[in-house]
Protein backbone atom coordinates (compact mmCIF):
# COMPACT_ATOMS: atom_id res chain seq x y z
CA UNK A 1 0.00 0.00 0.00
CA UNK A 2 1.40 3.41 -0.97
CA UNK A 3 1.74 6.27 1.48
CA UNK A 4 -1.18 8.16 0.00
CA UNK A 5 -3.49 5.18 0.47
CA UNK A 6 -2.23 4.76 4.01
CA UNK A 7 -2.93 8.41 4.76
CA UNK A 8 -6.41 8.13 3.29
CA UNK A 9 -7.03 4.94 5.21
CA UNK A 10 -5.90 6.43 8.52
CA UNK A 11 -7.24 9.89 7.80
CA UNK A 12 -9.48 10.21 10.83
CA UNK A 13 -6.88 8.86 13.29
CA UNK A 14 -4.17 11.16 11.96
CA UNK A 15 -6.48 14.16 11.94
CA UNK A 16 -7.61 13.44 15.49
CA UNK A 17 -4.01 13.18 16.70
CA UNK A 18 -2.93 16.25 14.75
CA UNK A 19 -5.77 18.38 16.11
CA UNK A 20 -5.08 17.07 19.63
CA UNK A 21 -1.45 18.17 19.56
CA UNK A 22 -2.38 21.52 18.00
CA UNK A 23 -5.06 22.16 20.63
CA UNK A 24 -2.59 21.17 23.32
CA UNK A 25 -0.39 24.11 22.39
CA UNK A 26 -2.94 26.08 24.44
CA UNK A 27 -2.97 26.05 28.25
CA UNK A 28 -4.83 22.98 29.63
CA UNK A 29 -7.99 24.88 30.72
CA UNK A 30 -8.23 26.49 27.28
CA UNK A 31 -7.54 23.24 25.43
CA UNK A 32 -10.39 21.55 27.34
CA UNK A 33 -12.79 24.30 26.28
CA UNK A 34 -11.63 24.29 22.65
CA UNK A 35 -12.30 20.55 22.44
CA UNK A 36 -15.56 20.51 24.39
CA UNK A 37 -17.60 23.36 22.93
CA UNK A 38 -18.90 22.44 19.48
CA UNK A 39 -20.91 25.58 18.67
CA UNK A 40 -18.94 27.52 16.07
CA UNK A 41 -20.08 30.89 17.40
CA UNK A 42 -19.41 30.09 21.06
CA UNK A 43 -16.05 28.58 20.16
CA UNK A 44 -14.74 30.14 16.94
CA UNK A 45 -11.11 29.21 17.61
CA UNK A 46 -11.76 25.50 18.15
CA UNK A 47 -14.11 25.34 15.23
CA UNK A 48 -11.72 27.11 12.84
CA UNK A 49 -8.78 24.97 13.94
CA UNK A 50 -10.61 21.65 13.53
CA UNK A 51 -12.05 22.62 10.16
CA UNK A 52 -8.78 24.19 9.00
CA UNK A 53 -6.63 21.16 9.79
CA UNK A 54 -9.08 18.92 7.97
CA UNK A 55 -9.01 21.18 4.92
CA UNK A 56 -5.20 21.39 4.90
CA UNK A 57 -4.87 17.62 5.25
CA UNK A 58 -7.27 17.19 2.35
CA UNK A 59 -5.06 19.42 0.21
CA UNK A 60 -1.98 17.36 1.05
CA UNK A 61 -3.77 14.22 -0.04
CA UNK A 62 -5.34 15.46 -3.24
CA UNK A 63 -2.52 17.73 -4.38
CA UNK A 64 -1.95 21.26 -3.22
CA UNK A 65 -3.80 24.15 -4.83
CA UNK A 66 -1.77 27.04 -3.43
CA UNK A 67 -4.51 29.61 -3.56
CA UNK A 68 -6.94 27.34 -1.77
CA UNK A 69 -4.50 26.09 0.83
CA UNK A 70 -3.40 29.66 1.58
CA UNK A 71 -6.96 30.50 2.55
CA UNK A 72 -7.13 27.43 4.80
CA UNK A 73 -3.83 28.32 6.45
CA UNK A 74 -4.91 31.94 6.80
CA UNK A 75 -7.98 30.98 8.82
CA UNK A 76 -5.83 29.37 11.51
CA UNK A 77 -2.79 31.64 11.39
CA UNK A 78 -4.84 34.85 11.53
CA UNK A 79 -6.05 33.66 14.93
CA UNK A 80 -2.69 32.42 16.23
CA UNK A 81 -1.08 35.71 15.14
CA UNK A 82 -3.06 37.56 17.83
CA UNK A 83 -2.69 35.00 20.59
CA UNK A 84 0.07 34.42 23.13
CA UNK A 85 2.39 32.62 20.71
CA UNK A 86 5.85 33.47 19.51
CA UNK A 87 6.12 33.43 15.68
CA UNK A 88 7.67 29.94 15.74
CA UNK A 89 4.94 28.63 18.05
CA UNK A 90 2.25 30.21 15.92
CA UNK A 91 3.15 28.26 12.80
CA UNK A 92 4.56 25.12 14.44
CA UNK A 93 1.24 23.33 13.98
CA UNK A 94 2.33 22.55 10.41
CA UNK A 95 5.42 20.69 11.60
CA UNK A 96 3.39 18.83 14.20
CA UNK A 97 1.76 16.94 11.31
CA UNK A 98 5.12 15.41 10.41
CA UNK A 99 5.51 14.15 13.93
CA UNK A 100 2.00 12.67 13.97
CA UNK A 101 2.44 10.90 10.62
CA UNK A 102 5.82 9.46 11.55
CA UNK A 103 4.51 8.14 14.83
CA UNK A 104 1.24 6.83 13.47
CA UNK A 105 2.63 5.16 10.32
CA UNK A 106 6.08 4.21 11.61
CA UNK A 107 5.54 0.49 11.21
CA UNK A 108 3.86 0.63 7.80
CA UNK A 109 6.47 2.99 6.36
CA UNK A 110 9.25 0.66 7.43
CA UNK A 111 7.52 -2.50 6.25
CA UNK A 112 6.53 -1.10 2.85
CA UNK A 113 9.76 0.84 2.23
CA UNK A 114 7.93 4.16 1.92
CA UNK A 115 10.66 6.47 3.18
CA UNK A 116 11.05 8.13 -0.23
CA UNK A 117 7.35 8.86 -0.39
CA UNK A 118 7.48 10.10 3.17
CA UNK A 119 10.32 12.45 2.24
CA UNK A 120 8.26 13.82 -0.65
CA UNK A 121 5.26 14.34 1.62
CA UNK A 122 7.39 16.07 4.23
CA UNK A 123 8.77 18.39 1.57
CA UNK A 124 5.19 19.36 0.73
CA UNK A 125 4.57 20.01 4.43
CA UNK A 126 7.70 22.19 4.48
CA UNK A 127 6.25 24.19 1.59
CA UNK A 128 3.13 24.75 3.66
CA UNK A 129 5.35 25.99 6.49
CA UNK A 130 6.91 28.55 4.15
CA UNK A 131 3.48 29.71 3.07
CA UNK A 132 2.46 29.85 6.73
CA UNK A 133 5.41 32.09 7.49
CA UNK A 134 4.33 34.55 4.79
CA UNK A 135 0.76 34.56 6.08
CA UNK A 136 1.86 35.07 9.66
CA UNK A 137 3.92 38.08 8.60
CA UNK A 138 1.01 39.50 6.62
CA UNK A 139 -1.21 39.25 9.69
CA UNK A 140 1.32 40.93 11.96
CA UNK A 141 1.97 43.63 9.37
CA UNK A 142 -1.76 44.22 9.18
CA UNK A 143 -1.89 44.78 12.94
CA UNK A 144 0.87 47.37 12.73
CA UNK A 145 -0.78 48.94 9.70
CA UNK A 146 -4.04 49.27 11.68
CA UNK A 147 -2.14 50.93 14.53
CA UNK A 148 -0.44 53.34 12.16
CA UNK A 149 -3.70 54.04 10.32
CA UNK A 150 -5.53 54.97 13.50
CA UNK A 151 -2.78 57.35 14.50
CA UNK A 152 -2.64 58.84 10.99
CA UNK A 153 -6.37 59.39 10.95
CA UNK A 154 -6.31 60.93 14.39
CA UNK A 155 -3.45 63.26 13.48
CA UNK A 156 -5.15 64.24 10.25
CA UNK A 157 -8.40 65.05 12.05
CA UNK A 158 -6.58 67.10 14.68
CA UNK A 159 -4.58 69.08 12.10
CA UNK A 160 -7.77 69.76 10.20
CA UNK A 161 -9.65 70.83 13.33
CA UNK A 162 -6.73 73.11 14.25
CA UNK A 163 -6.98 74.58 10.72
CA UNK A 164 -3.32 73.83 10.13
CA UNK A 165 -4.28 71.98 6.96
CA UNK A 166 -7.24 72.26 4.67
CA UNK A 167 -8.85 69.63 2.55
CA UNK A 168 -9.48 71.29 -0.79
CA UNK A 169 -11.26 68.34 -2.23
CA UNK A 170 -13.45 67.23 0.61
CA UNK A 171 -15.01 64.50 -1.48
CA UNK A 172 -11.66 62.74 -1.53
CA UNK A 173 -11.60 62.27 2.22
CA UNK A 174 -12.59 58.76 3.05
CA UNK A 175 -14.44 58.07 6.28
CA UNK A 176 -13.76 54.36 5.98
CA UNK A 177 -10.40 54.76 7.60
CA UNK A 178 -8.04 55.67 4.82
CA UNK A 179 -6.99 59.26 5.11
CA UNK A 180 -3.33 58.70 4.44
CA UNK A 181 -3.66 60.06 0.94
CA UNK A 182 -4.52 63.37 2.54
CA UNK A 183 -1.37 63.52 4.63
Amino acid sequence: MGLENLLTHKRSTILKKWSDVVIETYPPETAAFLKRQKDRFANPVGSVVFQGLEDIFGELLQGIDYERVSAFLDNIIRIRAVQDFSPSHAIAFIFLLKKVIREELKKEIKENGLSKELLALESRIDELALLAFDIFMQCREKIYELKAMELNNQTYSLLKKAKLIIDLEEQESCPNGDNTKNL
Binding site: E29, T30, F33, N43, P44, V45, I79
Partner: peptide, 8 residues
Protein backbone atom coordinates in the same frame (compact mmCIF):
# COMPACT_ATOMS: atom_id res chain seq x y z
CA UNK B 1 -11.12 37.78 25.50
CA UNK B 2 -10.93 34.17 26.67
CA UNK B 3 -12.78 32.82 23.64
CA UNK B 4 -10.59 34.77 21.22
CA UNK B 5 -7.29 34.80 23.07
CA UNK B 6 -7.24 31.57 25.06
CA UNK B 7 -5.55 33.03 28.16
CA UNK B 8 -7.15 31.22 31.14
Amino acid sequence: FFIGGGDP
